[in-house]
Amino acid sequence: MGLFKFLKEKFTKKKEEKVELTPESKKEEESLKKYNDGLEKSRKNFSNKLDELAKRYKSANQEYFEELEEILIEADCGVSFTINTIENLLEYTKENSITNPKEINEMLVDRMFLNYLKEGEDIKNELTFDHKPVILLMTGVNGVGKTTTIAKLAKRYIAQGKKVMLVAADTFRAGAKEQLTIWANRLEIPIVTGEDNEDPASVAYKGTKKGIDEEFDLVIIDTAGRLQNKKNLMEELRKIYNVVTKLSEKTPECFLVIDATTGQNGVLQAKAFKELINITGIVITKMDGTSKGGIILAIREELGIPVRFIGLGEKDSDLEEFDLDKYLYGLCSSLIKDE
């Protein structure tokens, strides 16, 4: 079965059958809508381009593949990923004498995400609450949206009935502590903060300790943004990680937050953070812009780190568990409808 057909059946058939809406299927539909809305701008730049391209060519030739290459590069998939994918596709279509542009487009999308799946062990995106407290360390370079993502994650798990607290271990940036405190107040959950320029590891320690003593389900620790080539700052993060790991029953969850507008530096970011601490997942933010976030493919291919959550808007409810099928549907729904 073709990829598009599969997605179409998965996501549109239900509607036609008019199955009675259970709360669960309703939630599922809402989630799909969020993907579809959030990725609207990305779709315009990605699948609409593929669509236009297919309409311009009767059969695919060398030029066609060059234009495909352009679309992938513009999605920030990276040069080597793009060249490999296109070459692979070119070879396959030649061997099997496939020249129908639409068919080729579908195969391209399929191939782009094939590796994503291949690399994946079965990963559960949601946090697993099999011990108390689950510690979640949020890391990333400056300005990617760590603090906002923390608020979104906290809201998500509060809604699931979890007892959540926040720890403001960014003691460096002006206003960072205040920003997280405002969120904690809005969400009506406790927060542990430190003095300005206090050792962030000591704040993380205090927070984790409180989380254990008061039996919270989830402790989310905010850390300062740091560029991955800053040795001292990276060492500081390692220290935070070590302190928290020592206290915690299980190794903490460590999310790396990546901005969807990031270019090829995203791979270096993921690599550096992964080498330093055990990164267990990526949160990709700002996907509601025009960026395509192709960098997650390169990261997945090179480092095998999965995306766990995806930020699809500015509201504190605009965070979804990453679901490849929904993501593809959101990114390609304009192509799928033609099927």
Binding site: D76, V141, D259, T261, T262, G263, N265, G289, T290
Partner: peptide, 27 residues
């Protein structure tokens, strides 16, 4: 952002169209 990817073109273009920029700062 110095780390920005391919989309920086669209961003700059739109900001410039709407506001007529006089310059840029790379962080």
């Amino acid at each position: 952002d110095a780390m920005a990817g391919q989309d920086s073109v669209n961003v700059a273009k739109k900001f410039n169209e709407d506001l007529t920029l006089t310059g840029a700062i790379m962080s």
